[in-house]
Amino acid sequence: MKKKKSETLYPLIVKIVFVAALLVLWEYVAKSGLLGEHSALIFPSLETIGAAFIRNFKVGFAGSSLWIYIGNSMKLLLEGLLLGIGLAFVFSGLSIISRTFSIIYNFVVSICDLLPGVALLPVVIIIFGVKPGVIVFLVVHAVIWPMSRNILDGFLAVPQIYVEAGRNIGLKGFRLLTGVYLPAATSYIVSGLKVGWARAWRGLISAEMIFGIASCPGIGLYINQMRTNMNNAEMYATLIVIVIIGVVVQYGILSPIENNTVKKWGMTR
């Protein structure tokens, strides 16, 4: 008897079967020696990767567990995100209050949004030297422009009637900004957060891979060290860690924010 596919169960089953098939294929390639004598190195078996996963945390590299590297990356990421998001709100908010500022800031955002952070890296290093602050700078750069773009677009899209309803009950200036513009633009702000986070996360790992900072070694540096030491299984295991962190942020932070705001208010675009 064929039962009706559940709306939520079916996609889940599809995903699980897909991943399982990939893993089987991977294991087959790893075990079969299809790729010649280096097969085991290029395609380490799942057990090897699993063991490496544990070793990453237990042994790690240069005397520090992968936890330390993750912690360092997260610290810089968090600093950069908070600073970037905070600045995006401040500058976008000022754009609502001052027209001149708005013209300038929109212009700046359009230009800076086009600059890949990694391309700025050499310049930043020349000016500031190799310091953890450089990573923070890159994270700020990754998050502030898409975040600002979304906030500014969100403000523009606020229906006039909310603004008038707000002014009618006595809101103006800063109060109008926090009481009407920000909540009304929430769906834009949430997409800004998503884009900003994704860019920041990538930017962080790339920057750490290009130049590891000895005083504050992060995940990118760790992967790079695994590569230079030909610890391929550890490399793969670390990639899995990176994916896990991404998933945790998506489902542990971003989705709840969305569920508790725009979804709850029926404001999804």
Partner: peptide, 27 residues
């Protein structure tokens, strides 16, 4: 504008969607 003159618009979407009925009135 001021709270001595309160406007009720024709548009159904004059309430703040991010506030409940009660909060729209209390705000």
């Amino acid at each position: 504008p001021g709270t001595d003159r309160i406007m009720v618009f024709q548009d159904f979407n004059q309430l703040f969607p991010w506030k409940t009925v009660e909060k729209n009135i209390q705000y």
